[in-house]
Amino acid sequence: MSAQRSTAGPAIWVRGLRKSFEKSVVLDGIDLDVDAGTVFALLGPNGAGKTTAIHILTTLLAPDAGEVLVGGVDVVRHPDAVRRLIGLTGQVSAVDQQFTGTENLLLMADLHHLGRAEGRARVHGLLERFDLVAAADRPVQTWSGGMRRRLDLAMTLVGDPRIIFLDEPTTGLDPRSRRVMHDIVRELVGEGVTVFLTTQYLDEADRPASRIALLDAGRIVALGTPAELKRLVPGGSVRLEFGSAADLEQAARVVDGNGPVRDEASLALEIRGEGGVHALRTLLDRLDAASVKVEAVTVRAADLDDVFLSLTGRSGSQEAPKP
């Protein structure tokens, strides 16, 4: 075990990964490097290939081409050695609905061949850590979706994996469960665990991830820290509200070159890439010079949605085009 844990190289190393299902190309030549003890977020719309990537990294699916090392071990040649290092919490709930929370966790303890006492101690610790003690001895099918999701992650942690894969860990979660998830991810990274997660929520990748890859239609279109990615776009947007349709009309003409988005219903104009102080002053001066009366100004800092939009031409919540 210790030899595998002290792998000097990256926790995940992928070169030229390809995967197709029948005629559709899902992953079209992907390279990834994830350092040990960091969070890596694979971000992309539905159908971008995120889940397929996770399934290949966790030995559930064989790649068509490319090299994939997890914990320094080849996933195709030594799947069992990889399985000893990893834990997966997928999108489909991987808990046994008919059993209680405690029974589910003890099952994991048995499969990791922990002794009886050690297994019980670890199960109890996880129930507390995941705020599940009160419901622990009720069948999981009576639990809420958020509780099941937390149990799912708790089961993944029983074996003390060094590399954890989370496939859309907070999709459909209530705020409380979402917060628990975020806290746990932070704690795990603090303990030196590598966390690889996928998400389609841009704000989620923005928070805990130390590095982000933007996946679009099977290719990585951008890679870097949240700050680096945000630097790729000019920065934020400005929303101007007007008192009359005439003012809106006039303002749209003045800022025409910036490709403003008109919101006729609320007499507002949204201009991307004008979030900086200097740009904002210039913009307001121009409107002033044209005698347009601005009722309200809202400035929004650049976020990953802007990055996504500028790189793919679509908003992050839209479906990827079918190849």
Partner: peptide, 13 residues
């Protein structure tokens, strides 16, 4: 069809 089978298949059992 239960997700737990996928979990088993990612474990070294």
């Amino acid at each position: 069809t239960a997700g737990i089978i996928a979990r088993f298949r990612t474990m070294a059992i």
